[in-house]
């Protein structure tokens, strides 16, 4: 099993216990060797966690070039602080927290994002939906329109499969705030999807 798959299985509760053990051992070994300065081991760690870091950066910042730069920054930073990392789980926690906080910092310095007013959106009934590429694209666009902190909460929940307590720990915010962000963000995303499912005639013709 590759280290990348090993890293994924660590956060997948449905993975077999034996696989988790070997995954943890492989990552533990790579971490130890990287801490002793072995560049190849650090490369293995990058490959194991690059999808997590890059995806969080991309879904936070939208622009692939910015996401790649941020992901590189995070790995360069973790390389300098490897001595403080005590386990692969700690490394994953550190990476998630760092990429989220740095992305939020960048978004705050670049206030050009479009944020929906979550308070103005009421709870809408659950639409009937199957596997739909257009819907998934729409969802990704809607996630990008969430305010930065709410976006980070949604990504940690639905990309990283963290529970609200883990999200609160990662982002350093109260548990109730995380739950509130999740509830209002889901309402916003559902409302956005509901708009997509409205018939074109219902939105009225355009008058160009």
């Amino acid at each position: 099993m590759s280290l990348s798959a090993a890293a994924r299985s660590m956060s997948d509760p449905s993975a077999a216990a034996g696989q988790e053990t070997s995954a943890a051992a492989a990552l533990e070994g790579a971490l130890g060797r990287a801490q002793r300065g072995e560049r190849a081991a650090f490369r293995e760690l990058i490959r194991a966690y690059q999808d997590t870091v890059y995806s969080l950066a991309l879904r936070m910042l939208k622009v692939p070039e910015d996401a790649e730069e941020l992901a590189q920054d995070v790995f360069v930073s973790v390389h300098r602080h490897l001595g403080k990392i005590v386990s692969p789980a700690h490394l994953l926690f550190w990476l998630r927290r760092t990429v989220c906080h740095r992305a939020i910092d960048r978004l705050r310095r670049r206030p050009s994002h479009i944020a929906l007013s979550l308070d103005a959106i009421a709870e809408v009934p659950l639409p009937d939906m199957g596997h739909d590429p257009l819907l998934e694209r729409r969802l990704r666009d809607l996630v990008l329109r969430l305010p930065p902190m709410a976006r980070a909460v949604v990504l940690l929940k639905y990309q990283e499969d963290l529970d609200p307590g883990e999200i609160a720990n990662t982002l350093g915010m109260p548990l109730n705030t995380v739950k509130s962000h999740l509830k209002r963000s889901l309402a916003s995303l559902r409302a956005g999807c509901d708009e997509l499912r409205q018939p074109i005639s219902a939105t009225g013709p355009s008058h160009d």
């Binding site: 994924r8 560049r39 650090f42 490369r43 990058i46 490959r47 690059q50 999808d51 997590t52 890059y54 995806s55 991309l58 879904r59 996401a67 790649e68 992901a71 590189q72 790995f75 360069v76 659950l126 639409p127 009937d128 939906m129 199957g130 596997h131 739909d132 819907l135 998934e136 694209r137 969802l139 990704r140 996630v143 949604v154 990504l155 639905y158 990309q159 889901l186 995303l189 559902r190 999807c193």
Partner: peptide, 24 residues
């Protein structure tokens, strides 16, 4: 189903193939 769709929409994505080389 909505949350499952959200899970699928936000599945992880790898960076370009030479990402680790650029970090190094």
């Amino acid at each position: 189903e909505f949350e499952q769709a959200l899970h699928r929409a936000l599945r992880k994505q790898d960076p370009a193939v030479d990402f680790s080389a650029r970090v190094e």
